[in-house]
Design a protein around this nucleic acid. Sequence first.
DNA 1: AACCGATACGAAATCGGTTTCGTGTTGATA
DNA 2: TATCAACACGAAACCGATTTCGTATCGGTT
Lengths: 339, 339
Amino acid sequence: MKRKITLKDIARELDVSISTVSKALKNSEEIGRNTKEKIQAFAKLYNYKPNNIAISLKNKRTKNIGVIIPDIVHHFFTTVFRGIEKYANQKGYNVIVCVSDESFDKEVINMEMLANGSIDGFIMALSAETQMKNDFNHLKEVTEQGIPLVLFDRVTDEVNCDKVIINDEQAAYDAVVRLIDSGKNRIALFTTENYLGVSRKRADGYFRALKEYNIEPDENLVLQLPFQYENEDKSETFFNSQNFDAVLCVNEIFAVRAIRIAQLKGIKIPQDLSIIGFTDGILSKLSSPSLTSVAQHGIRMGEIAAKMLIEKVESDRDQETFRTEIIEATIIERESTIH
Amino acid sequence: MKRKITLKDIARELDVSISTVSKALKNSEEIGRNTKEKIQAFAKLYNYKPNNIAISLKNKRTKNIGVIIPDIVHHFFTTVFRGIEKYANQKGYNVIVCVSDESFDKEVINMEMLANGSIDGFIMALSAETQMKNDFNHLKEVTEQGIPLVLFDRVTDEVNCDKVIINDEQAAYDAVVRLIDSGKNRIALFTTENYLGVSRKRADGYFRALKEYNIEPDENLVLQLPFQYENEDKSETFFNSQNFDAVLCVNEIFAVRAIRIAQLKGIKIPQDLSIIGFTDGILSKLSSPSLTSVAQHGIRMGEIAAKMLIEKVESDRDQETFRTEIIEATIIERESTIH
DNA sequence: AACCGATACGAAATCGGTTTCGTGTTGATA
DNA sequence: TATCAACACGAAACCGATTTCGTATCGGTT
């Protein structure tokens, strides 16, 4: 087994001091040509690589980014993560991921685990539970310690930090307008219970569109589904009892389930029922009919979040100015709507 | 901004030595009651937390695990990752993820980035390109340095290390037998070009089942599709030219696409065409008809991989014995087959 | 009074680097 | 020949912890 070689080893072997080796390997002008070449050759021969931990300790920079997301087995978060990882790697940063599992406690524990030197900054989306509890002390503590933080998608006004979001309200508005323009006027909304997180804004956009087009909003056309839903009873009941010709879903799972129930009932998509979902993921692309959906551009979101964070991390003076970047969602037309 | 407090700060403030503080905080018997209480109270008050980096440097243990996967926007890898993260976190480890993007070079770069002290061990699935090139020097170098390595799913015999795989051959065999038992006898195989990675074994199982049931294998019934395929021309041609009553797909994307084409052609599933896919992901569950598929139990795979790795990391003596754990894939019956 | 064993704590090395500053040697200059 | 700057390198501090070993102090024993 070849052990890792250190500066000390090289110094001992070549009979020079550690500082000389360090400088020689950085090609410092301070060291004579012969000595430098000798040291560099030796280092290459034995494949010397500096120890990251030692450098981190000295520099107080780890070149690690901490990412905390509620769920990794979820297409949107996965794509955002991909964007973060891509940008960060390219800038020489590694990404440490923790999954909060929508739990407040896990979110806190994960943050504490990472906040003691393991990372230079955080990128995160709040867990569902954190949003319900409205307790953001763990975030505040971290920012007070001077650790940069970027929130994405599931954000809060309570914490001063950089943020990246999509224009959820406008996107929902646009989607509904598109449905109206195609001749629909009994438009349902399938959303999450309690309008969790971004669902609130999407509902706002939904109602604004109805209002502007003088369509009386109908409470009965709003269906609140459990966050992780197992059976389709609630949706089936809805299909049986309500009369509607289009539906906006706050995620693609709800949309795909709607397609399924509609098909079982012999309802024609998009003629009798048009469907638009949020999250332009694999389900939207591969369902039959394929799904018109609001693309949230997760990769770009991740890249921007990473860019904002790394800029903060690498700027010496800590600025007290925070930005909120808004990513324009776009509607990808497919087979589940009329165009 | 509250800066992080260090042992030195506490020592200076309370006028004791650094070593006394360190011992007091570990509740060492060496330190007198009064001193200990004073120090502990002070530490709690100022929310002292030891610096992970310093501890890592001293212990030569980072409590970080490096995970390198070909693609994170892929359900199977995501679930495996989830399992790794879950187990690792529970054991006090953090997970650093790098995505190789199916590229050999990125895989090498990522490994080198992490192998210099950032992590205690690797868990990875080989990139497609690495498997094609058959070049595993980067893996060998790492293991020679004494860094534990666990390969999962996409493994190789060339490297001596722990491995976790599923019984792909047997699972494919079982799936085909199930199709035969349900009365099918012209069974197609939709696989990846060049039988990339695990596809080879799945094909082996497919052929073995045919042979044992005395069904003449038909080359024409094997369709090789591009790894990332964009259009459906190839599959459509296949549907038009071939006569078959069942198909085994090496992943769920191929399976869902098959469903779609079949539906467009008015072929009834599962009566006229039965379909079984690999990877029991969200597509399988939510497609219509829902898909009978081979569950690879990614979460368990990840947990086991993490368990094996952490055991190696935490055992002092480096064993030269390596295990290969085989996870039993199971078939989840849904609507795309007759039962 | 001399000695001894606890007790309670501090000094210093160590992990593997970086960086500042000091110094011996050299050749050039006055 | 004495002086001095430039050159080339080493000693040591530092980052923030852990840990070994040494020692001052104190009460008790003979």
